[in-house]
Design a protein around this nucleic acid. Sequence first.
DNA 1: GGTGTATTTTGACAGTGTCAAGATTATTTC
DNA 2: GAAATAATCTTGACACTGTCAAAATACACC
Lengths: 198, 198
Amino acid sequence: MTNASRYHHGDLRSALLQAASEQLKEQGIDGLSLRKLAEKAGVSRTAPYHHFKDKNALLCALAAEGFESLDELISQRFEGETLRDQMLFFVRDYLRFAVDHPERYELMFGRTLWKAGTPTPELKSVAYRSFRHYTDKLAALTAGQLPAGNDPLRLAQASWATVHGLCRLLIDGIYVNQEDMDAVSEQSVALILSALGR
Amino acid sequence: MTNASRYHHGDLRSALLQAASEQLKEQGIDGLSLRKLAEKAGVSRTAPYHHFKDKNALLCALAAEGFESLDELISQRFEGETLRDQMLFFVRDYLRFAVDHPERYELMFGRTLWKAGTPTPELKSVAYRSFRHYTDKLAALTAGQLPAGNDPLRLAQASWATVHGLCRLLIDGIYVNQEDMDAVSEQSVALILSALGR
DNA sequence: GGTGTATTTTGACAGTGTCAAGATTATTTC
DNA sequence: GAAATAATCTTGACACTGTCAAAATACACC
């Protein structure tokens, strides 16, 4: 019995997620429709609804995947000898992730899910976790080196905002060109580092 | 002859923009449909197409309005005696603008127009103008005070990225609570200022 | 074998952007 | 002032969307 002739797909959920991932990359968030995904998986229009409550739920799952990758990056990519090198490595890898997967990044951080939609508990949890990991990492790296009166949490928020803002401007093509990426990321790291009193 | 009975609306273009502005505020970008706007203006579904090429064009006009406001803010709101106060004023006003008009801000800077759609020449022009004004302002404020080897353009990009990233995290409801706004904006200003050598 | 559950299907509905062709009014031209 | 042209608006239509309800099918377990 061939794949195409089966009434039950067998692994529709992950087939949908995979198709969604490709569709997201090629067509963007708005070009992603449940009906197209269903067709891609060789299944009827409403079959996806037995694996995801609605479109929002599928998108949340897709975004959660992204945060998993980002979390790995945060956990691993602080290599380098000096603090400056470590931050530079991280910022460059983070930027590369965003530039390589712009639509995914938009999905992860954009209004679609967080404001227009309703983020899944799973999504919230994995997103907050990656931020906590970043805060921890930053705190460990700068332990005992922060100028008095500096809250590590505030610093994490402000520096994340810098990198995040850079990503947005970069991948949406506003104000910052991709050729400037290295120069601007160096400038941003300088921004963050000078707040650490170096 | 009453308004409702006229075949020609008279000022449909601005009526549509006004309706769109309200709709954007109440329902967000995705909740904004040309058909609803047409109905609000008391006109048939396709009438808008004689004033805007398509939905993208209308959204671009709406975003351009936003950049006009932002540009005023940049031109006027660098008050204060010290450089620190000036930056702090600006950052707070900028954040307030974004928080007060989150959907507008998303439209102005988001992928909808800049990547998924095609930004109008008018939109591009007014958006770039705002950034140029910011760069000029920053250059004027820090004239002769920049540490050697610092490119004003890079600094403008990096600092704008910081404020922009803060706005996004704030209005998209990720990570930063509105109550933390003042504290984080102070931290961000500190970030920017310390890069200026203070 | 029979029962219940998980999965998938078809049918349907309201909503969307946008094109084409025709109707109506304003404006320009003679 | 009348005729021609342009601007504006309307109706009809098409393909597409997310999602609900109800019926059909296959699987798992007792």
